[in-house]
């Protein structure tokens, strides 16, 4: 009996083949987005299925940036997404810490209720939400989107933050308190620096969710000046034609913030910062 068996080459090949297939599956639409965005208008339909156009242009980008309201949409989206990410993460960090560290009456009920909120299809509650926002006089404002997005993202973000706090040994806070910290000092000097990756991941997750949200933005915003970019993207669809090239160029531009963010955050996602805190 051999103790260690080498994996068979067939199996290894199969694994890589599966990974390659998945990568193509996931990245191909992205590739197509970029390809169409640099294809001149007159070639979109004649060379529509070619893997690379015979001619390329940055004209679509120029048009989108200088001759449409895209930059305004982009700015609105940035305000809404950053506002939502900040508000949600702040609330979720506090709630997540409490769920992770304290036992209090009704804790299980609150957690269960938060889970329940995740079970409703959005379409079911969109009308009531519209009514509420209208009654508050917030229709057509970016504030309404920040409030609604925050409300919808807090439960999941709280679970996310709770799991990050759960990953930080309780011993560390206790050691800090033995060393002379109040609970708040222990939180600020020991726990907070260790939660930075968690905060970053939560910020990123919420930012991305808010950045690409369409349904509520469509319902609550009808004024052009207050449109976010997913709604703005629809303005490229007119009654009789779709401006594919410009739409794709806008899509590529819209990808930039998320990409930058994940490049920035990925080293934290991979590496656990608490290594070395406790044994092992």
């Amino acid at each position: 009996m051999s103790a260690i068996r080498r994996p068979s080459p067939v199996l290894t090949f199969g694994k890589y083949a599966a990974l390659a297939f998945y990568l193509i599956f996931a990245l191909f639409p992205l590739y197509w987005l970029v390809k169409i965005s640099i294809t001149p208008d007159q070639l979109v339909f004649t060379e529509g299925t070619a893997l690379w156009p015979s001619e390329t242009t940055l004209g679509n980008f120029r048009t989108v940036i200088f001759h449409t309201d895209f930059l305004a949409y982009f700015g609105n989206s940035l305000i809404v997404s950053l506002g939502t990410a900040a508000a949600t993460t702040l609330i979720a960090a506090g709630a997540g810490y409490a769920f992770s560290r304290f036992n209090f009456g009704g804790k299980r009920v609150i957690i269960a209720l938060m889970l329940v909120t995740q079970m409703f299809p959005l379409l079911m509650i969109i009308a009531p939400i519209y009514k509420i926002v209208a009654a508050m006089g917030l229709l057509n404002s970016l504030t309404s989107l920040i409030v609604v997005y925050t409300a919808f993202n807090v439960p999941f973000a709280t679970f996310l933050m709770q799991s990050f706090f759960d990953g930080i040994p309780k011993d560390l806070e206790e050691a800090a308190m033995m060393d002379g910290c109040t609970r708040f000092q222990a939180l600020r000097k020991v726990i907070f620096p260790l939660t930075l990756p968690g905060l970053g991941a939560t910020l990123g997750f919420v930012f991305t969710a808010a950045w690409s949200e369409l349904l509520f933005a469509l319902m609550l915003i009808s004024r052009n000046e207050a449109m976010t970019f997913p709604v703005g993207l629809l303005t490229f669809v007119s009654k009789f034609s779709v401006d594919w090239g410009q739409m794709m160029a806008a899509g590529v531009l819209a990808l930039i913030p998320s990409c930058l963010f994940f490049i920035f955050i990925q080293r934290y996602l991979v590496q656990g910062l608490t290594s070395g805190a406790v044994k092992g």
């Binding site: 040994p169 011993d171 560390l172 206790e174 050691a175 800090a176 020991v190 620096p193 260790l194 910062l273 608490t274 290594s275 070395g276 805190a277 406790v278 044994k279």
Partner: peptide
């Protein structure tokens, strides 16, 4: 502490 509980940062 049993786990040492050193501040990792």
């Amino acid at each position: 502490f049993q786990s040492y509980a050193l501040y990792p940062h």
